[in-house]
Write a protein that binds this DNA or RNA. Structure first.
Lengths: 200, 200
DNA sequence: CGGCGTTTTGAGAGAGCTCAACATCGGTGG
DNA sequence: CCACCGATGTTGAGCTCTCTCAAAACGCCG
């Protein structure tokens, strides 16, 4: 979801698919790392378990997401990966990837660019979460995502998805959008939101 | 703060320092990108401004943080960078960096590894923010940061810093830690927190 | 037409935020 | 050596805002 076209075509070929039943482990903490994966379908969670048996979630990878990218540079995995539902994953063997990088610096650069973009977008998202007020948070999100005209935002997914992205309940999002509209701060028409140019 | 030893020694040499007064812009949206920066001292914020003049913060870089990493792969900057206080920054010209990558694939790999780790740690942090309850959030943080023995966490900074990292007010953090201690869920002694092995 | 997921609005409760006071600790200078 | 100072750490009380639970309207697809 974060980044599309993850593997360039030239490396996609080396991918190896594997099927997981719900609850099945893809790898465990400490096991030798084969390389990063891509979730083709289903849902895989990365977790760490403490000595009291409590499970803390690091990340939930959905269809299209990459997972364990940094296993490229590490001899073993540093957490457990467990399929939450019946899932299909694709392994990109790290040897093949690294060899490809050395052979073709362009590919390496493209990968680095992808990581750099992910870092930026994650930092931006985190910054958003530091804003307590729902209204401010939504306002900032809109400002950050305006199109070329500087005041129109085109929503890509559903509002529920946006709510999850923003870290709000969907109810809070609906309500706040409604308020902002009735205050003339924004204008809604379908999947398009336009910010009012008049300042507060 | 996120990652130390950012530039490998061999590229640190090419850095160029610059001083900024409070409020001074380092670069503007659309201006030609020279390369990524490191904040040596002070505080620089990356912001985007909408047509109504509202400023939304993408990221706040403190001393030691890198900023505009992805300018390496982009012809121009995609936001404004403004010094919040009197600051010193160091520019790493992108031409020099990219050349170094091609000359020395090891350096390129090290950079990629650093990005990959940042992505992981940011995703983990974001996942933490999805947990509403302060107590659960703290519990997860502790579980994710236990030392080799699987049940002891050594706090690196102040509790206030931890509160900011977790997205809680420091009061909420103090109180919840106190509660957890009185419930015998954790044990505190100075900068060390030990999780109780007994499960809930 | 019938079902399922999204969107929307209502009402209530609780968790964390805010404001405030005080304790504690480390450093600094007289 | 002690008084002072600032920052961190701690606890109290009240309040707001968002979450939670609920129900209904809407839109889409078979």
């Amino acid at each position: 979801m974060i980044v599309k076209n993850w593997p360039p075509a030239s490396v996609r070929a080396v991918g190896v698919e594997r099927t997981l039943k719900a609850g099945e482990a893809l790898f465990r903490l400490g096991s030798r790392s084969a390389g990063p994966y891509e979730v083709v379908s289903g849902k895989v969670r990365l977790v760490r378990v403490d000595s009291a048996g409590r499970e803390a979630v690091l990340y939930v990878a959905m269809a299209g997401d990459a997972l364990a990218e940094s296993s490229l540079f590490s001899p073993n995995y540093h957490c457990d990966a467990i399929a939450s539902t019946h899932s299909v994953v694709r392994l990109y063997p790290k040897g093949a990837l690294l060899a490809e990088f050395r052979r073709n610096p362009q590919i390496a650069e493209a990968f680095m660019a992808m990581f750099a973009h992910q870092v930026m977008s994650l930092r931006t998202r985190l910054q958003l979460r530091d804003i307590r007020s729902a209204r401010e948070r939504i306002r900032d999100y809109l400002t950050l995502n305006v199109g070329a005209d500087g005041r129109t935002v085109l929503l890509s997914g559903t509002l529920k998805e946006l709510a999850a992205y923003l870290g709000l309940t969907h109810e809070a999002l609906y309500r706040t959008l409604a308020e902002m509209a009735s205050d003339r701060e924004i204008n809604r028409s379908g999947k398009k939101i336009t910010l009012s140019t008049r300042r507060k």
